[in-house]
Design a protein around this nucleic acid. Sequence first.
DNA 1: TGAATAGTGTCTATAAGACAATATCCC
DNA 2: GGGATATTGTCTTATAGACACTATTCA
Lengths: 254, 254
Amino acid sequence: MPDGPSDEGHDDGERAFLESYDASSFPRPSVAVDVALLSALDGALYTFVVRRTEHPFRGLWSLPGGFVRPDEPLDDAARRVLDGKAGLKDVFIEQLYTFGDPGRDPRTRVISVAYFALVDRGRLSVALQGEQQVSVARVNIPWEGETGGPVSVALHDQGEVPLAFDHEDILGMAAKRIRGKLDYTPIGFQLLGETFTLRHVQTVHETILGRPLNKDSFRRRMLASGQLEATGERQRDVDHRPAELYRFVRRSAV
Amino acid sequence: MPDGPSDEGHDDGERAFLESYDASSFPRPSVAVDVALLSALDGALYTFVVRRTEHPFRGLWSLPGGFVRPDEPLDDAARRVLDGKAGLKDVFIEQLYTFGDPGRDPRTRVISVAYFALVDRGRLSVALQGEQQVSVARVNIPWEGETGGPVSVALHDQGEVPLAFDHEDILGMAAKRIRGKLDYTPIGFQLLGETFTLRHVQTVHETILGRPLNKDSFRRRMLASGQLEATGERQRDVDHRPAELYRFVRRSAV
DNA sequence: TGAATAGTGTCTATAAGACAATATCCC
DNA sequence: GGGATATTGTCTTATAGACACTATTCA
C-alpha cells in the first residue's frame, strides 16, 4: 500500500504538483487481464475458452479477458471477466504473470496481466449453460515436470485448435505454476467439490502433475498434512467398496 | 507469442480493422517497472534504493523504477532501469508480480510490473560508486517462512526509513519469492561470486531463509545436487583451515 | 462367489539430523 | 601447541516406495 502523501511529512509542494500533473503527457499502453480458468475432469486438464467475435483474431478461441478499467484493481478486473464471460462468482484466482511483448496484440501495445482460476468440475460445466460462443477445451501439456512452455488445446468436436494472441503461453505458464505450487499449497482442493475421497484427490494431483503417484505414500502424506477431515460419510452408488468422504480444512496456523 | 494475423488464414477484414483501429479511444493507465535489487552481505539481505528528487514522495527512498516505453519489452525496461540507476548490466532478473492498486501512485493510475534482481555483494558495492542519490539499505523481514507481507528497510546512518509508494510490499514479495524458490532452483548462486566455499553458500541460504540450517545435511545436499564443481583451489588468508573453493555449474539437462 | 477398489501393516531404501573424530590452516 | 573451521564417517530417525493382506460394496 502506498503511503498517502500527507502522511509522511514531506513538503507541501507535493499537493501543488499533483494538482498540475498531466497524466496524458506520456505515451501509455493498454492494460488487460486474461484468465486461464482450469479444472480437472476424468484425468485431464480443461480450460474455458471464448470465441472471438471481433478483430483481431476474429473467429479464433481465446481465454476470457478484458481491459482494465481506470479505477479498477487488477484482481477485480479478473473477477469481473470471469463473471461476465463464464457466469462464475467467488472463484479462486491468483495473479500469474504479466505478458508485455510489444507485438503480442496487433492493434496496439497491450500489456496483459494474466491470472489463473481454479474451479471444480461441476462449476466448469455450469459455466457453459446457454452460451454458444464459449466452450471447454482440453489442455495438452507437451513438456515434463516444470520445464514450461506453451501448451496446446483441443475442442471435443474439432480437435486441436490454435488460440488467439499468446494465450497458449499464458495457459502454459498457468500449468507450470500450479504444478509447482501443488506440493506445498492446498491449491488442489480448489478443483474438488465439497467432499471427496482420497482417490479423487490423488487423481487431481496426477492430472496436474501429468504423472502417476504412489498410492500408499500419497495417502499417508495427505492424512498427515492435517488438511483433511473425515466426514463419516461414504461414497454411494459405486460398484466397489465405497471410500470415506473427506472435507478440506484450512491447516490451523501453527 | 501471438500469431501474426496473416498466418492463420482468418478473414481479410482484419487488416482493414487494424488500419482503422484507434488506440486512444480507451482510457489507459501508465505502466512502470520497479526493480528490487537484492544481495546478501554478512548474514543480512540488502537492497538498492534511490532517493526521489521529484514529486511524488520527493526526498523519500524508493526502488529504482521507470515508465515502460511504447515499444519496449518489460524485461528490457527492467534491465534499462538497472543499468541507468545502478550502472549494472547482465544482471539476473525475473518478473515478480504486478502491482495495480488504483491508489498506489497519487499522480494517476500507474500499474507497476515489479521485478527482482540478484547480484553478488561485490557488484552491489560497485553500483554505488560516485552516486549521491543512491544507497544500499538493509532489509528486515518481520515474518517467518513464506508468510509474506511488507518488509522494512534501514540505512546505515539513518536507521529505518519508509519507502515511497508500495515499495515495501514489492520488496516483501521479492523476499517471499526467493525464499520459496531457493530450495529447488539455483537462485542462490546469483548472490555469490565466481568461486565460493560451501560455508558461503550455506550463509547465503540462511540469510535468505532467515533461519539456521543443519550444516551436515546442507553440505550433503549441495554436493549431491550436481550443481557444484570443485576448482581444486582453496581459500587464502583465512585464520583457520582453508576450505575448498567451488564453482557453480548448470545442472546437466537429464 | 467374483470383481473391484478401499484401507492396513510391514519391510526396505533413502535423506536428514546429531554427533564424534580427524585434518589443516594461522597465530 | 592452541584456536578455529573444514571434512569425513557413523548412528539414529523420519519419510517414501514396494508389496502383501484384509475389508466392503455391488453384480
